Amino acid sequence: MSRRAIIVTGADLAPEALQLLQDFEVVYAGKTPQEEDLVALCKRHDPVAIIVRYGKVGATVMDAAPSLRVISKHGSGTDTIDKEAAKARGIEVRAAVGANAAAVAEQALALLLACAKSVVHLNQRMHAGHWDKATHKSLELHGRTIGLVGLGAIGQRFARMCDAMGMKVIGFDPFAKNLPDSIRVVDLETIWRESDAISLHCPLTDDNRGMLGAATLRKCKRGVIVVNTARGGLVDEAALLEALRSGQVASAGLDSFAVEPMAAGHPFQGEPHLVLSPHIGGVTSDAYVNMGVGAAKNVLAVLGQGVAAAHA
């Protein structure tokens, strides 16, 4: 009897995760799987599980896999999975919550510091032979207010980093509980009004898509810093670009974008007050293992293999 199949929408999985899935046939969809590729693989292998690394999994893919019982995200964000379609078909959707929290929080801090200290600009100037000590002034973050939208595993870890630097931490998350005293919980209007820097750590939903747009940015302090290591759809990119050029936003550090990968000629490219990274906040050697193991454990938990679901 052939082994049950698990499709991975990527080209690899950590050896530690594969060890957990040794009783299954693991099928890789490649680095850039398209819907038609996934449909073909599902029809060929009829998987009991899909581990989602790249690409989207919607109703068409699900319908091509009649034995599918669980869709497990290799990470924490499930916006690339059609959860309503999965629910309608009795398919569970799981995420490896917290598996990449340290990695993403560190990336958020790196982007915040790069913006506040003009790291990229000064590096370029130095390599070009300039010495700007007499003319440049960076922003000191100590005593400044950081506003966090989303206080899950990543947001709380980033909050601890900011608190350690002496920043005042305010945050909004209607679902977070038992938060530390170092975070002052406020509403979104207070986030926009009081923050010297804003960092997004929430999932993307239909309700918050484009939440950081023209109207919101006008409510912010002039010269605010924006950091986004969550999902690109949270930000209205045209509005952010206009705010950067007007000085309403002093600088922004972005690790996620509305359309990925970013195409050549994107308006963000070459913008002097933008620090960009290619959605690699959660891509570290440690997080790679943690996310793979978390995704594998979630698959096994749903399939009743006796392994507890992965948690942060």
Rank of each mutant, 00 (worst) to 15 (best):
V119R: 00
S118Y: 12
N100G: 12
L122V: 07
N100V: 06
A105Q: 07
H121D: 08
H121C: 01
S118L: 11
R94W: 01
G98V: 13
N123K: 13
Q124Y: 09
V119W: 02
A86C: 15
V104R: 00
N100M: 10
L113K: 09
K87G: 14
V120H: 07
A105G: 11
I91D: 01
G90L: 05
V119Q: 05
R89M: 06
M126S: 08
V93E: 07
L111S: 06
E92K: 14
N123G: 13
R94A: 10
K87W: 05
H127S: 10
I91N: 10
A128G: 08
H121R: 13
C115L: 12
A101T: 02
V104E: 08
A108H: 01
A102Q: 11
G90K: 08
S118R: 13
A116C: 10
A101K: 05
K83I: 08
G90I: 00
K83V: 13
A85P: 06
V120G: 00
M126C: 07
A102N: 13
L122I: 11
V120M: 12
L113E: 01
H127V: 04
K117I: 00
C115V: 09
A85T: 13
V97C: 12
V120E: 11
A103Q: 08
A128V: 02
A108C: 08
G98I: 11
A96W: 08
Q107E: 14
A88D: 10
A114K: 12
L111R: 03
M126V: 09
A108I: 06
Q107A: 14
V119E: 05
K117P: 00
G129V: 05
I91H: 01
E84I: 01
R125K: 11
C115Y: 00
L113F: 11
G129C: 00
R94E: 14
M126Y: 00
V93N: 07
E84T: 12
A85K: 04
L122G: 03
C115E: 11
A101N: 10
H121T: 13
E92A: 15
K87P: 04
E92H: 11
A103H: 11
A85I: 09
R89P: 00
A101C: 01
A101S: 15
K117F: 01
A86H: 05
V104F: 12
V93C: 14
A103Y: 12
A103D: 11
Q124V: 00
S118T: 02
E84C: 03
H121V: 08
L109I: 13
R89K: 13
R94D: 07
